[in-house]
Nucleic acid binder design. Structure first.
Length: 482
RNA sequence: CGGGCGGUGGCUUAGCCCGGCAAAGCGCCUGCUUUGGGAGCAGGAGAUCGCGAGUUCGAAUCUCGCCCGCCCGACCA
């Protein structure tokens, strides 16, 4: 891996310009592209396949806990959107409106293109809730949403993006809060166990809370430039929406009560996260559990006769391996070296090179995308070796990300120390905080954008606030964020 | 949404200042030769110069408007 520079063409090196590296990788690895409409991207098959893998993982989790998928309308009447004051105040700046349509022209009431669906889902699901026996309602939908973003970036912040939004309705406050935590745990699992991307799990500060929520929780991952990425959020909405939208039920004592509701979302941004959490100067490194292709085979031959021998040899173990992992044999006309570079750019975890020498020895050359190591392995055990290697790869990738985060995590006691730190480098910086929005805002102002990512609400620190010196309420993680 | 920069075959760019036949490398197609880390030779195709107006005998080049992208700020998953 020392000859990195030589191998890679057309990708800006990470160390030279991380943002350009990211855009280069997304486009050269054929994950996504621009569309010509500002903020709207084309997700290409290789990128979409990763999103599908993420979808499958999370969908299985929520189905196992009783959630059901619905589909709700894209267009939301203005009147409906306007009912929850804080919510609409938070979202208005980025809502796009349909104001005319068809032959009839201008609409009597303009329609919002959903930026999120609390309002319409609440107004519809309320119909199906009369008694405490109808609760909880555990709804989810996979859909697209639109938010008129000022500054966009493929996967990380696009105007239109794909996500799931879960919306649940409960009879009891405690139950709704448990739901928020259950989903947050699912997000952690998706991030850590599937994407090999370690995350901080915690509560958002007031200023970063979802518009209309009582509190929000998030998972926050560290990218390889040391910036934080909020990769999933779960909100406790209290009775804010149920009172605004009159979502109520009759309890056991025959009294009318408002529901306790939650909402939670995870988007195609997750795909951007996996790119930035694992990539290197040669391109992507895709976690095996998400990888559309886990093992790529590059056949090597000179003559037609050699080609036939190599092909016959591959066929002797191909089927058994396919039953265990996602395998692709690259029979394209390119030369081997070109294939090596191409599949490394695409981040395929394992590569098998198979040439006449290997046929003779009944073995293959196994190369590891993460370490760059190559070694010969016998073909006989491939169907066992490869799944094992993929598991090892998944763990090693996670461990590497964990180590990277540890190397880039710091602790400070004062605002000055924090400012000094961020003048030099990025990363996560833990510090005690009194809980006031003033102190939080001051850090943000003086540092030029460093914000509180989240914190563990149960941890009680002993020190004093890094800004004001009053007793600290929480130990919080500061970072620059995407 | 403000400030700065950019858009020329599929990709990366030169040409623009100083208006006069649209160029190079890579990629692509055909053939031969090659194949264990992006090969070589020969031939070939491919461009409304982001879009629209204006100035001019003549615009990739000058002027204005718009669109898209990048960077810096403010705003946000």
């Amino acid at each position: 891996m020392t000859e990195t520079f030589e191998y890679v063409k057309e990708i800006t090196k990470m160390s030279v310009d991380f943002d350009r590296w990211y855009t280069d990788v997304v486009r050269k690895a054929e994950m996504a592209d621009y569309s010509g409409v500002r903020g709207c991207m084309v997700i290409r098959p290789y990128g979409y396949a990763m999103w599908e893998a993420i979808q499958r993982a999370f969908d299985d989790m929520i189905k196992s806990s009783g959630h059901e998928n619905w589909y709700f309308p894209l267009l939301i009447p203005e009147e409906l959107l306007m009912k929850e004051a804080e919510h609409i105040e938070g979202f208005t700046p980025e809502v796009a409106w349909v104001t005319e349509a068809g032959r009839s022209g201008k609409l009597d009431q303009r329609l919002a293109i959903r930026p999120t669906s609390e309002t319409i889902i609440g107004s519809i699901v309320r119909r199906y809730i009369q008694s405490h026996r109808d609760l909880p309602q555990l709804t989810n939908q996979w859909c697209n949403v639109l938010r008129w973003e000022m500054r966009t970036r493929l996967f990380l912040r696009t105007a239109e993006f794909l996500w799931q939004e879960g919306h649940t309705f409960h009879a009891f406050e405690a139950e709704a809060k448990e739901e928020v935590d259950r989903i947050l745990e699912y997000y952690r699992e998706v991030a850590e166990d599937w994407l090999a991307m370690p995350v901080l799990v915690g509560v958002k500060s007031r200023s970063e809370t979802f518009a209309g929520a009582v509190y929000s929780k998030s998972i926050e991952a560290m990218m390889r430039d040391g910036l934080a990425l909020q990769a999933g959020t779960s909100h406790f909405l209290g009775q804010n929406f149920s009172t605004a939208y009159e979502i109520s039920f009759t309890n056991r004592d025959n009294q009318r009560e408002f529901c306790w509701t939650t909402s939670w979302g995870m988007s195609t941004r997750m795909v951007g996260g996996l790119i930035m959490a694992h990539g290197d100067d040669r391109g992507l490194i895709v976690p095996p559990r998400i990888a559309p292709t886990q093992v790529v085979v590059v056949p090597i031959f000179r003559t037609d006769e050699e080609r036939a021998r190599v092909e016959a040899f591959i066929e002797t173990w191909e089927k058994a391996v396919r039953a265990e992992c996602r395998l692709k044999v690259d029979w394209s006309d390119n030369r081997p070296g070109e294939k090596f570079n191409n599949w490394e750019l695409k981040g395929v975890p394992l590569r098998l090179a198979v040439g006449p020498r290997d046929v003779e020895a009944r073995e293959v050359q196994l190369a590891d995308r993460l370490t760059g190591e190559k070694r010969q392995v016998p073909c006989a055990g491939l169907f066992e070796i490869l799944p094992h290697e993929l598991k090892k790869f998944q763990n090693a990738l996670y461990q590497r990300a964990l180590d990277f985060r540890a190397e880039n995590t710091f602790e400070v006691a004062t605002l000055q120390q924090l400012l000094d730190h961020f003048k030099e480098r990025n990363g996560f910086v833990w510090a005690p905080w009194c809980g006031s929005e003033e102190c939080e805002a001051r850090v943000k102002d003086e540092s030029g954008g460093v914000s509180i990512r989240n914190y563990d609400p149960d941890e009680k620190p002993s020190g004093v606030c890094l800004v004001c010196g009053r007793p600290a309420e929480h130990r919080v993680a500061f970072a620059r964020a995407y």
